[in-house]
């Protein structure tokens, strides 16, 4: 079975890879490109642990084929911090203890960043509905929502 050659922009860098036709973007990221920040919690788009953005749009990378990445801009959790400087969401997640086990955290951070890009002043309800596609089993979401709201406020003040 011949593989497909894909050229894409990943976290700002032009990236090439070969993949099988049926391989998901998540599998490509994790198994071929060494980016294991996105997690597979379900493989069916129900848990959001594999969240990435594609051309700025939030997607479950388990529901997209690797071959579909051709010519796209892919952003993953690995690119959220600017060198040593954490993104405000990352910092607020730590300050608010918004993670316990941490498996859902990369997906939730990517999703929350996408929320704040589209809506810098979400209400609590808007944040809860935006993040409804990201399952967390440890926290009951309380501290996650607080961290997102706090980060949003800080980012608004800074802008």
């Amino acid at each position: 079975m011949s593989q497909i050659h894909v050229t894409t922009r990943l976290n700002g860098d032009e990236t090439e890879f070969l993949c099988d036709a049926q391989e998901t973007l998540l599998d490509v990221l994790r198994n071929r490109l060494g980016l294991t920040g996105a997690k597979e919690g379900c493989g069916t788009g129900d848990c959001g642990a594999c969240s990435v953005t594609v051309d700025g749009r939030l997607v479950c990378s388990c529901l997209m084929l690797g071959a579909e990445a051709v010519g796209r801009e892919i952003e993953t959790v690995e690119n959220m911090a600017d060198g040593e400087t954490l993104h405000p969401l990352q910092r607020k997640f730590l300050e608010h203890a918004a993670l316990q086990c941490g498996i859902c955290t990369p997906g939730i951070l990517v999703a929350a960043k996408s929320l704040l890009e589209q809506n810098p002043s979400p209400t609590e309800e808007e944040a809860r509905y935006w993040l409804a596609g990201n399952l967390c089993r440890c926290t009951g979401y309380d501290k996650i929502i607080r961290a997102v709201m706090d980060a949003a406020e800080e980012m608004r003040r800074a802008s």
């Binding site: 920040g37 954490l86 990352q90």
Partner: peptide, 14 residues
């Protein structure tokens, strides 16, 4: 914490 908010933490499948 830093490992877990940056995607660096290595879980079972990583």
């Amino acid at each position: 914490g830093i490992d877990k908010v940056t995607g660096r933490a290595r879980f079972g499948a990583d």
